[in-house]
């Protein structure tokens, strides 16, 4: 039996935002300002909207940047709105963004953070009236060791 473990996180969403090249930094900054931890940016090439905009299309950069941010369910709307406004997506041809629900995430979570998260439950005294059940957002299970 291996001592390695995976911690699964749930109740998270991935926000994908496609904007013109060099606009991604503003979008990422806005997301971080409202609580997003980090972002991943990749480069892409877009087509469609430039052709449909006719002459105005020449002002739209064909080179795009794609921002992906993973956020918790609670902060998703706030981050989505901040990114939308920072990317000026309410203007024609500026880009598009969407949000997908994730089944689960796995990443390294320090033991002390996990212990801290579990602590309030252990300390909580039983109440006369049962509180509504909270959804489990992290589960941990052992995993087989694989050669790198």
């Amino acid at each position: 039996m291996s001592d390695r473990q995976i911690t699964y996180l749930t109740d998270a969403l991935i926000i994908t935002c496609i904007v013109q090249a060099s606009h991604a930094d503003n979008v990422v900054k806005a997301a971080q300002n409202v609580g997003a931890q980090g972002a991943t940016v990749t480069y892409a090439r877009g087509t469609g909207v430039r052709e449909r905009m006719g002459l105005m299309g020449v002002a739209i950069d064909e080179q795009k940047e794609m921002v992906r941010i993973i956020v918790s369910q609670e902060q998703s709307d706030r981050v989505f709105e901040a990114m939308y406004l920072a990317g000026e997506l309410d203007k024609p041809g500026m880009g598009i963004m969407f949000m997908n629900k994730l089944d689960r995430i796995a990443t390294y979570i320090p033991d002390e953070v996990l212990a801290e998260a579990a602590e309030p439950k252990a300390k909580a005294k039983p109440k006369a009236k049962a509180a509504p059940k909270k959804r489990k957002t992290a589960t941990r299970r052992p995993v087989k060791k694989a050669s790198k």
Binding site: Q5, I6, I14, K101, D103, R104, I105, A106, Y108, K148
Partner: peptide, 18 residues
């Protein structure tokens, strides 16, 4: 997860969606 060694810090992130 196992190949990436996610039980170590700074190793990345994996997610799954339908």
């Amino acid at each position: 997860c196992s190949k990436m060694g996610l039980d170590e810090p700074q190793s990345g992130m994996v997610f799954q969606m339908r």
